[in-house]
Design a protein around this nucleic acid. Structure first.
Lengths: 332, 332
DNA sequence: ATGAAAGCGCTAACAT
DNA sequence: ATGTTAGCGCTTTCAT
């Protein structure tokens, strides 16, 4: 005799000799006599009963949040994911995590998550096309874009002020008196990279700097390494490199150093993100910190306020912070 | 006039002028005339209807898998998490991700996940007490432990063969003729670290080596750095260090190098995990690879076979693989 | 405080 | 092929 099936509240009711509603009330913490509660809990324990949390989706509202995330293995994102999990769980939400492979299945992923009647969605993929954003905007469930701006579409978003950050780096390089800038980029399909590039290039131009050479296409160590190799092959070596992410910078630094090109003596490097590794002795990277705790906090706030009925769809920009470390040659 | 509420299949049925079952059939892909299907899809589109995937938990079985994960920010785990997501989603499951803060709330986390009627659970926290494992064993929903062995409890588990890996390192050190071994450990509350230590110590003893000094208590860069500092303060410096994880090794290496102690000239280092960063130029770390794709694959296989009714609760050990890189001084 | 009964959105079994 | 009906496990009236 095997008792596979999970017991229902009715089973518990019978076992305890009370009504099914008594069981329900006991577990939803409403008025029951101590007597009844005892009987119910005892029966539940004996039967191994556990109320089905998913069914709240029928009578009440779901407490699921969909988190759609690409680039999980870019060290910036585990930090972000953890922060989201903590913040969301703290407030009684549970997360359904959906992995994204580049932009291709983003559309399907959103649909998928919506099918589970999530209460809200957070999308952290940088590679989101406007069609998908459009779908998010149309959806009746609130969506917040993390680190992805889509202009002209009515979606909430939170992002670091990438344009301004790019400008900060340009100013820094000009102030240091550098004259041969380079930019190692992430994918220009992502607004974040485009914006960093834009701020960097524009400010450089404004201040009479030269237009940087640019390499790279994705946030990875390997791409950074290859870009640096390409840079070394140029007729004229750069004296300063702005990398659109810390991982890119690590790859570049390792390649440069292996080639005998000293950082920061021969070339200065500035990264982006300030992932924990940037502070490590092996890199000691000057970088622009994305205030991720704060960004996550605000993303969650926006999402929850939308869930609570607010119809505002704010787009919030938080400033990056320059973190000075050892990869920038002191000014002359 | 706002139309907040999400439409139900009944709404669609009315709108399309068909029965509710026609709607259900259309979306569950069963026999409907082309005519009906068209009408239904059209109505659904107009109303923005989407079948509620959660309700399958009532009539059928849930397709949710709970993934309970600690240490998300230890770079080993994002890789693992991604692999789990891909493998599980590929097979039609969705994942509910629960974050764990050390061991303290592991119990509650499992309970929580169980409340969502997940079909199975994967636990990747190394810090699992036997009581919780006991609860997993008792639960009617299959649980697979990843990288955590609990002896004497009837739970499925998959882990790298840590004892053997420890032995491999001991052999390596002895073969190289080293005589002053050290061990930088992760938390000894985790079976993985205990086992690595055991294999290392035992084999060293068997081959007449000296008992290693040991420092450390958690897989983080900072702990590795501190342990190395402690090691340097010892009257006699070690000539070889086995670090229970790559991040520990990175911290140790940076500290040693900063103190002028050359790796591998003065001291050889072996890490554990083979996370991508271990291959980076800055570290080029000799390490023991945990074959994570394979481990994930097997974990998923075990879980799914249990879901499919198998009552076997296998404990599988997969061998670690030595990856030789530059932090081991060539043998004399 | 408790039980009976209705209903949530869907699938499945039963009719036609 | 389609509509009708009966549940699934719960929460919520509504009585008592």
């Amino acid at each position: 005799m095997k008792k596979r099936q999970q017991p229902s509240s009715i089973d518990v009711a019978h076992h305890a000799g009370v009504s099914q509603s008594a069981v329900s009330r006991t577990f939803s913490g409403r008025s029951v006599s101590e007597e009844t509660r005892r009987k119910v809990l005892r029966a539940a324990d004996e039967l191994g009963y556990r109320p089905n949390a998913l069914l709240r989706v029928i009578t009440q509202q779901s407490n699921l949040i969909g988190v759609v995330m690409g680039e999980i293995t870019n060290p910036f994102y585990p930090e972000v994911l953890e922060a989201f999990l903590v913040a969301l769980e703290e407030r009684g939400y549970r997360v359904m995590l959906k992995h994204l492979n580049g932009a291709k299945d983003a559309d399907a992923a959103i649909e998928e998550v919506l099918a589970y009647k999530v209460r809200g969605i957070i999308v952290t993929s940088s590679y989101l096309g406007p069609e998908i954003a459009e779908r998010c905007a149309k959806s009746d469930v609130p969506v917040v874009l993390f680190n992805r701006l889509i202009h002209g579409v009515d979606v909430s978003a939170i992002s670091c002020d990438n344009v301004d950050a790019g400008r900060m780096v340009a100013n820094l390089f000009m102030d240091c008196g550098f004259s041969r800038p380079a930019f190692i980029s992430g994918s220009l399909a992502a607004s974040s990279n485009l914006d960093r590039k834009k701020g960097f290039f524009d400010r450089l131009a404004e201040r009479g700097g030269r237009e940087p050479v640019v390499f790279g296409d994705e946030h990875s160590y390997e791409v950074g390494a290859r870009a640096a190799a390409d840079l070394l092959a140029q007729p004229e070596r750069p004296d300063c490199i702005f990398c659109a992410s810390d991982v890119l910078a690590f790859g570049a630094m390792d390649t440069l150093r292996a080639a005998g090109c000293l950082v920061p003596e021969h070339v200065s490097i500035v990264g982006f993100d300030d992932i924990p590794m940037a502070a490590w002795g092996a890199f000691n990277l000057t970088t622009l910190r994305q205030p991720r705790r704060r960004m996550v906090k605000e993303a969650v706030e926006i999402l929850l306020s939308r869930i609570d009925g607010s119809s505002a769809k704010p787009v919030r920009l938080v400033p990056a912070e320059l973190v000075m470390r050892g990869t920038l040659k002191a000014m002359a």
